[in-house]
Design a protein around this nucleic acid. Structure first.
Lengths: 224, 224
DNA sequence: ACAAAAGTGTTTTCTATACACCCATGG
DNA sequence: CCATGGGTGTATAGAAAACACTTTTGT
């Protein structure tokens, strides 16, 4: 049997900076959609696992090595790409933007973090993919502790609060949030304080992935 | 660019009969895994949407036309199929088994509904796919009213209870369940009663998909 | 002393759970 | 009249939400 379908992967990578949720986009070097912004991605190699393909393309095109990656959805509409029948397995990733200096390479003439509230128009059906990823992120952060992937390993409680407010798009009561989050017993309070210029210095916290997984196995549920 | 990857779809179709959750399997006619049980599925045609491919293969191989279908996950491990690099987009479907007389055809020598508690060993990584689908079903039924897809359009409240208990694998308090479910105001109580042989005759109910979607838009959340 | 952000407890409301009795029918 | 499954209400406990003052620092 001959099949003319080609398989690609695309990555929706989120970062968090200056209280903004941002997404990593590349400016396409080649046609179609030359000079349009698009999600990083590319063809899967014959013997390459899908996750590896995403990580490779992401690194080639942007210089980013991903911390957290999960499969989002497979987009297979026959007319989604003018080049032919391209089916794309989309992934959704989280990264700390300051960990990398992003640099355009191979198929991209430019790479940038875009505030998710100020997105350019995107190539192919990438706007649609991005929208799905945003929905997933919002849902996910409420029932799994993925938010920590977007913060430094040591972070201020206030940052965590703001992250949640940014992603969920609504205000959260500081006291209730802290009570709930600390009550889960998956954060370690460090003996370091940080003064942010003005105001009372704040404590640093650290997420304990080990303790979380242990508690998860025991049946304790993360939910915010 | 030449790519030797082939794209398939597989379907995990659940049904509910005699208080058992069952899944539709075919016995393979050809090698590899000849005479093994497997999920129905097959190759995607060049200009065919993925959902269409699943529905077509399902109909060809089993005679079932699906009511509810959603994408589950894409399985792309390079060594998941001995025939080469076959990436499979798995779907998850719900159907009322009594609506169809299942009949083996094309690639199958036999088709059967298997109780999910008495599964045979399966070809390829299909046991893994099935496991994912079961997890998804259990999660899904708790926050979206998909259970009705497994019942007749008119059903007894007791059947709904039993369906939930079967899928969730635990007892549910009849009174609390009824209170919660009826409180959602997405069921219509009909003026028909059915006597099941012995005991007090029970009322028939009907799920109002329209009302559910209206309420969902208004932000009302289904949760059991 | 004041502005700014951090830290903390209590009260109220709502939701989840636990629980037991009467009802309508067939045999 | 009894066995069987259907139908219903209330009390309790626990979780979520609402809410405001004190603390520590820099200026």
């Amino acid at each position: 049997m001959k099949q003319a379908i080609k398989l690609m992967v695309d990555a929706v990578v989120f970062g968090y900076q200056d209280r903004k949720l941002s997404v990593l986009l590349i400016k396409r070097k080649y046609k179609p959609f030359q000079d349009s912004w698009a999600l990083p991605g590319g063809y899967v190699k014959d013997k390459e696992p899908l996750e590896e393909a995403v990580e490779r393309e992401l690194y080639e095109e942007t210089g980013v090595k991903i911390d957290y990656l999960e499969q989002l959805y497979t987009f297979g509409n026959p007319d989604r790409d003018p080049r032919g029948r391209l089916v794309s397995v989309a992934y959704f990733g989280l990264v700390r933007p300051d960990k990398f200096s992003i640099t355009a390479d191979t198929d991209a003439v430019d790479v940038e973090w875009f505030d998710t509230n100020k997105l350019p128009s995107l190539a192919f059906d990438h706007a649609h993919i991005l929208k799905s990823a945003l929905q997933r992120l919002r849902a996910k952060i409420s029932y799994e502790p993925v938010g920590f992937e977007l913060l430094d390993s040591k972070f201020l409680f206030g940052e965590l609060e703001k992250l949640y407010m940014t992603i969920l798009g609504r205000d959260i009561d500081r006291r209730n949030f802290r009570k709930k989050m600390l009550g889960l017993d998956i954060l370690d309070q460090l003996d370091e304080k940080v003064s942010e210029g003005r105001g009372r210095p704040a404590n640093l916290f650290q997420f304990s992935k080990e303790r979380y997984f242990r508690k998860k196995k025991e049946g304790i549920v993360f939910e915010i």
